[in-house]
Design a protein around this nucleic acid. Structure first.
Lengths: 155, 155
DNA sequence: ACGTTATAGTTTCATTTGAAACCATTTGCA
DNA sequence: TGCAAATGGTTTCAAATGAAACTATAACGT
């Protein structure tokens, strides 16, 4: 932990950001810390990246999506999705067939192996989430939910 | 925006994560969206990366830090800090001298040019933050502050 | 039907990133 | 003192990433 240290000479003219109260900064650190903790749980064990896990998670929820739809749902760009899918299909965790009516599109699903892995990872992810939320009391959790709903970019 | 689509066959045995209610996922999207909006403001204009801006922001607040201390304050790893500093020093936005008593350490400060840039970017960053917070009412903002305090990894 | 434009997805290439190795200096301690 | 371990910081190398170009199919307008 950083030693205490005198703030810069706010020679009156400057108004430095107070990062410790700056929302974007705090969100970034919080988000990275939590995501990394979850990733640590499964990355070594399953040789899978965060992006790949995200793709699997949305396919678990929404079967038969196209790659573009996966990109939308995960807020990842299509190149990242394409690459994640390449690995997932290769590893036989996701199946890919071309759409009947539109041969540009793919139709994606978890395979049996994909489901098996999903069913092992999802509870770990939920457990980590619970650990984080355990720091809050019930009232705070309700407010957090509400606040996130309002801040969330709608889509 | 994604078309509505039937959730996967939760063939009873599976319990997919509901990403839209999954805290780590929501935080990640929110954080990236906000940080990117701010970055868009200054990246083109000043040819500076998010990591470089973060380093400048902490040096604005805490003058004379070492590289390691910057890494701690920004929650970035030391390699990233080292590289950001190389560019910042090169661009004459940060000055670096070696510490008197410990020749391994550097002593970092914003230069005049660094301060000038800081004083232009900081208000833009604050304005973006205000835009985001404007979506909340006063009570929600208080709760958010409180919740972040409790979730924040202490350091 | 035909050419133009749009969309789904992949590949390529240059840049960014992280882990580990590395160098220099300092600290701890026999 | 002298030597092993720790620390601050940089470099190297491989992997991850993003922007732009590309392929293939579909949709649109005439």
């Amino acid at each position: 932990m950083p030693a205490k240290r005198k703030p810069a000479p706010p020679t009156a003219e400057h108004a430095p950001l107070q990062l410790e109260h700056f929302l974007p900064y705090r969100l970034s650190i919080l988000s990275n810390t939590i995501s990394q903790a979850i990733a640590d749980d499964y990355q070594r064990r399953y040789d899978i990246s965060v992006t790949e896990w995200r793709v699997m998670a949305v396919l678990a929820r929404f079967d038969g999506l196209s790659a573009r739809e996966v990109a939308e749902r995960t807020a990842m760009d299509k190149v990242a999705v394409s690459r994640a899918l390449a690995r997932l299909v290769e590893a036989k965790r996701v199946s890919r067939v071309t759409h009947d009516d539109d041969k540009r599109r793919s139709v994606l699903s978890l395979t049996e192996a994909g489901w098996t892995m999903h069913d092992e990872v999802a509870p770990m992810a939920r457990a980590r989430e619970r650990e984080v939320l355990a720091k809050l009391d019930a009232e705070e959790r309700v407010w957090l939910e509400r606040i996130l709903d309002k801040l969330q970019p709608v889509y």
